[in-house]
Amino acid sequence: METNSLFKSGHTACAGCGQAIAARLVVEAAGPNTIIANNTGCLEVFSTKYPETAWGVPWIHSLFENSAAVASGIEAALISLGKKDGINVIAQGGDGSTGDIGLQALSGMLERGHDILYVCYDNEAYMNTGVQRSGLTPFDTNTTTSPAGKLSSGNVRPKKAVPEICLAHGIPYVATASAGFVQDLTRKVKKALSIKGPKYIQIHVPCPLGWRHESNQMLSVAKAAVETGLYPLFEYESGILSGSRQIVPKPVEEYLKLQGRYKHLLSNPEEIKKIQEIADNNIKKYNLRVVP
């Protein structure tokens, strides 16, 4: 790793943490003229335990759910100081702090038209507090608060469609990305920052601890989510689907079998069929299938 990285090594993330890799890619794509507001969560905890910090750019953490509003204040202050041009403002957080408790602050930031990139690191549950379900936990996922049992096959609801909620605000750029597709992620961050106004990128970041896979399988798991159609990678520019990553779809089992959080499903073809339907719908909706 480069010693002068904007996100330095030595932080306390778990081995194979998808969020740590994605966060470094985001800040390196953004460059040194960037100010980051960070929600409470794993990333905040493992990167800034006093008296150390991993961040090489100005960085602020206030609370769990308010990075979008704090970033709004930073942007307004930069305008007031006449310094906004040339400085990127990024707000970021995990899926719970973005799509659940922070959704209102995010909506306000998008609606007001601030020139801010919001990045959601989506590891599909409250990992910092011990793998409780969030609104972005996928259907049938086993978490500590949506456990599989005699009467349950895991999380009862499908994943909340936060990118679509953001799209409904009429913002100029919405994209999904994955820690498993590094160049695609970097390109999307750079593209987003080249556009004025509110932008939203949601990055799928495997969590070895919460998803129960080996640390060295992080990239394979992330790739399998995309290749099965369960985590479609797409871009919307000015409200129009402008691109999606084409795949030759693999059956969803290829993704599910890699993770302990879906172990309870492997002998349950009925449930796997429901999850395959979710993937099939994504493939259709976002034109994911490679045209031969």
């Binding site: 602020i60 308010n66 704090v70 204040g73 930073i74 307004a76 202050a77």
Partner: peptide
Amino acid sequence: SVVLGASATGV
């Protein structure tokens, strides 16, 4: 939160 962020930015 907005005034917090703005104050931290020095205004």
